[in-house]
Write a protein that binds this DNA or RNA. Structure first.
Lengths: 343, 343
DNA sequence: TTGAAAGCGCTACCAA
DNA sequence: TTGGTAGCGCTTTCAA
């Protein structure tokens, strides 16, 4: 494997010059530049990550990470935070620090304020689970247009200029739910659907994926009724109970987002656990137990740990090593968990 | 984050001494050793991977990787090789090279010969998908007892002294198949089973997991008949056809190992595609198409790419950085793939 | 515009 | 048994 040193010797210039060429720092004679580039290409030069990483230590980089505070109402984020903290500890080895802030999902003003605070404190990159509100969207757009690197997590703002998105393909995750539903009901079912909010983009995407897929491929499945639980377990209990009492013909339940525990409580209180096939998202502490007990037959997962770590990797590559993300969309793998492959 | 340099200054010794203590190289005065260890612990010293990695370059390490040549009959290994080659290219950056050899699954003599050749050529670590034969087992046991690092992949030899195993938990993968079967047949099914060979340990493990699980939890499922296809597609076609003709009551098919294409051809030729629920392992090129077309309803996956890369990581940590594996069993995640979450 | 040199953390070697 | 030093690849700073 060739090194900068070797290229420098072959080109008859100093390592500094090679570095300037290879990293587009400018101020290099164009003839020398050309020569260096030729040699680098001929030797198939690839930079040595360990060397780059080591040199990062002197930069004392800092990144910001903003995500939802609702780890209690939506325990999915517990695993995301776990990923962030693990990777942050590793990055600490290179004097890279991560400043984590939490916002309520309904508080765009606070989220914008946190963005600004982090910027003032001198971060050189931001990972954020953005609230889908014009205030936030505009702020991110502005940052991006100034060349400031932003990575969106869990929820995307596609035309904002952010350098990458890490998270689920929600439409596809809805289709996957449809596929599971079809398998477990042998092609014929009356589905009750409980969603958090029809205003949250990722949830409407899931619903769209589900609806379109059954419409095109699984016509024996129909959505009998839909309720909204506001991602709240208690409300979830109430509306699910109402839903099931009102529509006794329902034989499967599609839980689009949080409030899993509440919904399942309603099912068991009505004595419908045997009768109802429940499909949900994410393997949180609560849903794991419910899968294990048989109350939930399948959960669709979206790599929460990876959602925590990957954005930091992308930012470090971009800011620390000058490496662009390989792609724009880092979609998480859609896993299916049942009782037997849960642990 | 503390460095060796800092510890040396605090302890009033040279970095060399700290290095000797921290890496158990011996030849250190016990009082100094104690002091260094105390300081390291107090500062929560963790070695910097980038520094270590960089220093590895001078060692010119070489690892061996022996696996099955049957990538055509068992295309699962294509993805494993993909993983090996990707990681090998990355390791090349640190002057670490990987020597890959292939053995037929029924040729233990050749596998032993390849082990010996690699050893003679001076490798400092070995990853191997071992053939379950006393010749191979004994050879690995011997290596391990001499302190030579061996990582088993895909198939384990548990009491051989190898430093780690990377691969599937086959028993659990059998249980998972049982769980899927139960879901898609609503608890009642007559299963036809096609396996490669009753002599291959990982397959008997899968069968045991499947059998025990339906016995304990899904009593409505029964294994009506079993055939052996020798992991060969053509034989698989023949025996599956025979199986289905002889037992028209069979309504689901459990494909324990390779020969997926042949088995599904038999199903479609008999016009049973609609009627039969087929569950198999691995998403190979062939099985992906069959899932997409609906001939297979679900496949259980076992992270082939990871099976390629992880053993090399373990060996590099062990030999290059003096870091023991975190655990003995690196079980792969058991994924479930259906049409909707396939790509 | 360019080169020389120091430094990031760790390991290995030589000399004492 | 120890300390000093060079070197792994890369970046950055300073001086020319």
């Amino acid at each position: 494997m060739p090194t900068i040193k070797e290229i420098a010797e072959l080109a008859g210039v100093s390592r500094g010059t090679v570095d300037r060429v290879l990293n587009h720092r400018g101020h290099v004679d164009s003839i020398k530049e050309k020569k260096v580039l030729e040699i680098a290409k001929a030797l198939h030069y690839t930079p040595c990550p360990a060397g780059k990483t080591l040199a990062i230590k002197k930069k004392n980089l800092r990144f910001g990470y903003i995500l939802f505070s609702s780890t209690s109402s939506n325990p999915f984020f517990i695993d995301v935070v776990d990923g962030i903290e693990k990777r942050a500890a590793e990055l600490g080895e290179y004097n890279v620090s991560v400043d984590i802030r939490y916002t309520g999902e309904k508080n765009p003003e606070l989220q914008v304020k946190q963005i600004d605070e982090l910027l003032e404190s001198g971060i050189s990159g931001l990972a954020i689970a953005p609230i889908n509100h014009s205030l936030v969207i505009e702020r991110i757009r502005e940052l991006a247009s100034n060349g400031f690197p932003v990575v969106t997590v869990n929820s995307d703002i596609s035309d904002s200029g952010r350098i990458a998105y890490v998270g689920s393909n929600f439409y596809k995750s809805g289709e996957t739910a449809a596929g599971i539903m079809n398998l477990i009901c042998a092609g014929s079912s009356k589905v009750g659907m409980v969603m958090g909010s029809p205003l949250v983009l990722c949830q409407t995407e899931r619903v769209a994926g589900f609806t379109n897929r059954i419409g095109e491929a699984y016509k024996g499945i129909e959505i009998t009724a839909t309720e909204v639980n506001n991602d709240d377990d208690i409300l979830s209990f109430v509306v699910t109970k109402r839903l099931l009492e009102k529509h006794p013909e329902i034989d499967s339940l599609f839980l689009v987002s949080a409030g899993v525990l509440g919904a399942c409580r309603a099912v068991s209180e009505l004595g419908f656990t045997e009768k109802l096939k429940v499909v949900c998202y994410d393997t949180t502490i609560a849903s794991r137990e419910l899968i294990d007990s048989g109350a939930i037959v399948a959960a669709i997962t979206q790599e929460p740990f990876y959602q925590g770590t990957k954005p930091l990797d992308i930012l470090l590559d971009y800011v620390g090593m000058g490496v662009e993300p390989e792609k724009e969309y880092y979609y998480t793998e859609l896993g299916i968990k049942i009782k037997e492959n849960l642990y």
